[in-house]
Nucleic acid binder design. Structure first.
Lengths: 158, 158
DNA sequence: TATTATATTGGATATATATGCAAGAAAATA
DNA sequence: TATTTTCTTGCATATATATCCAATATAATA
């Protein structure tokens, strides 16, 4: 029996630093790091640690620590969901605005990518540290923008 | 094909009002309410809604809405986890204090239950709306208190 | 230290959850 | 309205996750 306390700590570290999509993936990492355990134990650990599995908004899943709160992706309720990736946190539409939230520090870079598209439908973008405001021309539909963003914001609900 | 928007709304309502432990349980409720769907669809809904499944701290699981944040149950890190139930949210120990968080409105009632124990190890309790402060006598160990609370706070990590 | 109670874990497996595929709606467009 | 494209869903099933049981270790106590 190895050291549980240490393992628990390591799990926290891993989950807070990289995106984990399944217990299997996390297990592999732990094994590589020299921890010796099975999926059964990992499942128990996650349960006790109250670590949750949640849709990442991008067609995949992600494990999150308690306390970290998940943004509601899309308030335009109905219709299907929308993009996300690794830096992606959420996207919302309202009138001729689109607000994209990113992990801290990414907003500027992503905004540049969006600008590079030089899409007519986009009047402009303004980016802070973790938020991008995309201003659309009047009459542009949500779906149009999604199409434009499709290769910046990876997959859409696979 | 029924109305998706309405169903999504209903799911939110249910999850925010009662404790859901599995998709199966939620599915049953929806079916009873007249919604017509399968587990496959529900799984997709939850994924898109970013609703997460997380250990309830009591040996079971609970589905939570995005935004609701999960309290870390137990900061005394190491050692195993601790209790929880239906009103239960979290428990923390520090020195001769124990703080129990509950769902809103429950603190008073639970505190009465604790008082009713008339345990020597407990100097007294103070309850707000969703938080109970339990003051222990010096030298009382965490485990002792857990034993006392055992039948108020259901199972311990089954 | 011996004894008893409590925790931790893996293996195997049950259970729960996710998804590929195809079919039937709904919406957009011609 | 006819046609094309996009959604939504169920079914069957793959995949992922949780848990029973038994073994072993650890801690508590005598």
């Amino acid at each position: 029996m190895k050291n549980k306390t240490e393992r628990i700590q390591k799990i926290k570290e891993i989950i807070s630093s990289i995106k984990i999509e399944s217990q299997g993936q996390l297990l592999d990492i732990l094994l590589e790091e020299g921890y010796d355990l099975t999926q059964a134990t990992l499942s128990r650990d996650l349960k006790r640690m109250r670590i949750a599995k949640v849709g990442d908004g991008c067609g995949g899943y992600s494990y999150i620590l308690p306390g970290q709160n998940v943004a509601k992706t899309l308030n335009t309720s109905h219709s299907s969901s929308v993009p996300a990736s690794n830096w992606f946190v959420s996207i919302d539409f309202s009138g001729q605005f689109c607000v994209i939230k990113t992990r801290p520090g990414y907003a500027g870079g992503i905004a540049l990518d969006i600008d590079a598209k030089e899409a007519d439908q986009i009047m402009g973008t303004i980016a802070g540290d973790d938020t991008i405001l995309v201003i659309l021309r009047g009459g542009v539909r949500k779906k149009e923008l999604i199409d434009i963003l499709r290769d910046i914001i990876p997959i859409i609900d696979k």
